[in-house]
Protein backbone atom coordinates (compact mmCIF):
# COMPACT_ATOMS: atom_id res chain seq x y z
CA UNK A 1 0.00 0.00 0.00
CA UNK A 2 1.39 3.39 -0.93
CA UNK A 3 1.86 5.84 1.94
CA UNK A 4 1.46 9.60 2.11
CA UNK A 5 5.15 9.78 2.90
CA UNK A 6 5.98 8.11 -0.41
CA UNK A 7 3.75 10.57 -2.25
CA UNK A 8 5.64 13.47 -0.67
CA UNK A 9 8.95 11.91 -1.71
CA UNK A 10 7.85 11.29 -5.29
CA UNK A 11 6.55 14.86 -5.53
CA UNK A 12 9.85 16.18 -4.22
CA UNK A 13 11.91 14.11 -6.67
CA UNK A 14 9.72 15.35 -9.52
CA UNK A 15 10.07 18.94 -8.24
CA UNK A 16 6.28 19.15 -7.83
CA UNK A 17 4.82 21.34 -5.10
CA UNK A 18 1.93 19.57 -3.44
CA UNK A 19 -0.23 21.14 -0.74
CA UNK A 20 -1.14 19.17 2.40
CA UNK A 21 -4.79 19.15 1.33
CA UNK A 22 -3.89 17.37 -1.92
CA UNK A 23 -1.86 14.59 -0.31
CA UNK A 24 -4.84 12.44 0.66
CA UNK A 25 -6.50 12.42 -2.77
CA UNK A 26 -3.15 11.98 -4.59
CA UNK A 27 -2.37 8.97 -2.42
CA UNK A 28 -5.70 7.39 -3.39
CA UNK A 29 -5.09 8.18 -7.08
CA UNK A 30 -1.66 6.67 -6.99
CA UNK A 31 -2.98 3.53 -5.26
CA UNK A 32 -5.47 3.10 -8.13
CA UNK A 33 -2.74 3.62 -10.74
CA UNK A 34 -0.54 0.99 -9.13
CA UNK A 35 -3.46 -1.43 -8.86
CA UNK A 36 -4.05 -0.97 -12.60
CA UNK A 37 -0.41 -1.70 -13.32
CA UNK A 38 -0.65 -4.82 -11.16
CA UNK A 39 -3.61 -5.97 -13.26
CA UNK A 40 -1.53 -5.63 -16.43
CA UNK A 41 1.37 -7.45 -14.81
CA UNK A 42 -0.91 -10.31 -13.80
CA UNK A 43 -2.27 -10.55 -17.34
CA UNK A 44 1.25 -10.58 -18.81
CA UNK A 45 2.05 -13.64 -16.71
CA UNK A 46 -0.63 -15.67 -18.43
CA UNK A 47 0.45 -15.16 -22.06
CA UNK A 48 3.48 -14.78 -24.27
CA UNK A 49 5.02 -11.43 -23.42
CA UNK A 50 3.96 -8.75 -25.83
CA UNK A 51 7.16 -6.77 -25.62
CA UNK A 52 8.60 -5.34 -28.77
CA UNK A 53 11.71 -3.98 -27.04
CA UNK A 54 12.54 -7.46 -25.80
CA UNK A 55 12.10 -9.19 -29.11
CA UNK A 56 13.63 -6.53 -31.35
CA UNK A 57 17.37 -6.11 -31.43
CA UNK A 58 19.84 -3.54 -32.65
CA UNK A 59 17.80 -0.80 -34.25
CA UNK A 60 20.98 1.12 -34.86
CA UNK A 61 21.99 4.22 -36.78
CA UNK A 62 25.20 4.79 -38.79
CA UNK A 63 27.54 7.46 -37.42
CA UNK A 64 26.80 10.04 -40.13
CA UNK A 65 26.35 13.73 -39.33
CA UNK A 66 23.06 15.33 -40.29
CA UNK A 67 22.47 19.07 -40.18
CA UNK A 68 21.39 20.39 -36.79
CA UNK A 69 18.57 22.92 -36.41
CA UNK A 70 19.25 26.65 -36.58
CA UNK A 71 19.76 28.16 -33.13
CA UNK A 72 16.69 30.41 -33.42
CA UNK A 73 14.57 27.38 -34.28
CA UNK A 74 15.82 25.47 -31.21
CA UNK A 75 15.14 28.52 -29.01
CA UNK A 76 11.78 29.39 -30.53
CA UNK A 77 9.73 27.93 -27.68
CA UNK A 78 11.58 30.07 -25.14
CA UNK A 79 11.13 33.37 -26.96
CA UNK A 80 14.58 33.31 -28.43
CA UNK A 81 16.40 32.58 -25.16
CA UNK A 82 19.26 34.80 -23.99
CA UNK A 83 22.48 35.23 -25.99
CA UNK A 84 21.84 31.91 -27.70
CA UNK A 85 21.18 30.06 -24.43
CA UNK A 86 18.10 28.71 -22.71
CA UNK A 87 17.59 30.66 -19.50
CA UNK A 88 16.32 29.23 -16.24
CA UNK A 89 16.29 30.42 -12.66
CA UNK A 90 19.57 30.02 -10.83
CA UNK A 91 20.15 26.37 -10.10
CA UNK A 92 23.09 24.98 -8.23
CA UNK A 93 23.99 21.48 -7.11
CA UNK A 94 23.02 18.35 -8.88
Amino acid sequence: MITQEEIRKIAKLAKLYVSEEEIGSLTEDMARIIAFADTINAAADTQEPFDSIQSLQNALREDVVRPSYPQEEILRNVNGGEDGYFRTKQSREG
Partner: peptide, 24 residues
Protein backbone atom coordinates in the same frame (compact mmCIF):
# COMPACT_ATOMS: atom_id res chain seq x y z
CA UNK B 1 35.08 10.45 -30.46
CA UNK B 2 32.19 9.53 -32.69
CA UNK B 3 31.17 12.02 -35.35
CA UNK B 4 27.59 12.22 -34.13
CA UNK B 5 25.72 12.18 -30.84
CA UNK B 6 24.53 8.95 -29.25
CA UNK B 7 20.86 9.20 -30.25
CA UNK B 8 20.73 11.70 -33.14
CA UNK B 9 22.78 12.87 -36.11
CA UNK B 10 23.96 16.15 -34.58
CA UNK B 11 27.71 16.71 -34.63
CA UNK B 12 29.82 16.19 -31.50
CA UNK B 13 32.26 18.98 -32.50
CA UNK B 14 33.56 21.01 -29.54
CA UNK B 15 33.53 24.77 -29.09
CA UNK B 16 30.80 26.30 -31.24
CA UNK B 17 28.06 28.88 -30.61
CA UNK B 18 25.61 27.62 -27.95
CA UNK B 19 22.68 25.49 -29.07
CA UNK B 20 23.83 25.19 -32.68
CA UNK B 21 24.55 21.42 -32.54
CA UNK B 22 21.03 20.58 -31.50
CA UNK B 23 17.86 19.05 -32.86
CA UNK B 24 14.49 18.05 -31.39
Amino acid sequence: STKTKIFCGCTTAFGSEPNTHCCP
